[in-house]
Nucleic acid binder design. Structure first.
Lengths: 125, 125
DNA sequence: CAGGATCCATCAAGATACTG
DNA sequence: CAGTATCTTGATGGATCCTG
């Protein structure tokens, strides 16, 4: 049995599922894997997300200890988001998921013209 | 650019995210990784799921080519679900996710008494 | 046994406008 | 620049009952 902030789980998969069960968090982390990013950079790189949703998701990830937020007391403001150690440990998960996505397109989809927005990542942990 | 049933993606992660962005699919696949299962077995093993939801999720996974459904013309009925090749390829994703879940509990949670419902899986692909 | 059929509550997320 | 504040909606999933 696993306890994570007051909630009991009988399956480690359910813990990850519970955290990442939404449309955006994995994408945000995927972009942070290539290095820390400012709010605006994330807003531009994570396709189609709205400011409100980005803010909400960043707060949730911070609260769960997966990303860190650093605000610089400047005008104009500057806020930088980065992965915590446990957040960084998602790298192999995302890499496997990326590979599976490619496999899935190969089997059930098609490749087409047009640029992709994959960040360039090192595969090493 | 990736095309998957009429939808365009610029990121392979988004493909996986789009498919598994719900409360149940990954858990169902996790249980199918230990072997094919009947409807009733899944209903009992996937904690807390309702019959309707299980049916809906199985249909969605079948439609996306990730699981296969085989119905035996018997009375009482017998239906067996199993992973397709591309579904089986989710094994490394789920294994990494499982490991991360354990890491996350180690850092941000606690282990406790009580049995877990993890299926016993081989780590090999 | 393996669903199907309804009805319903909730909530994530989009759109839009505003601010320290 | 990095957010807030409202308003609104579509879909997910829960509850319950029914059936080939």
């Amino acid at each position: 049995m696993y306890l994570v902030n007051g909630k009991a789980y009988t399956c480690a998969i359910a813990i990850a599922q519970d955290i990442f069960n939404d449309k955006w968090k994995l994408g945000i982390i995927w972009h942070l894997l290539s290095g820390e990013k400012r709010y605006k950079e994330l807003f531009e790189e994570v396709c189609e997300i709205t400011q409100k949703t980005l803010t909400v998701k960043l707060r949730e990830l911070e609260e769960k200890g997966i990303i860190a937020r650093e605000a610089f007391p400047e005008i104009p403001p500057k806020v930088v988001y980065s992965l915590t150690p446990i957040g960084e440990k998602l790298r192999p998960v995302l890499n496997e998921m990326f590979d599976w996505g490619i496999d899935y397109v190969t089997v059930c989809g098609a490749f087409s013209e047009g640029t992709v927005c994959e960040p360039k990542l090192s595969k090493k942990a």
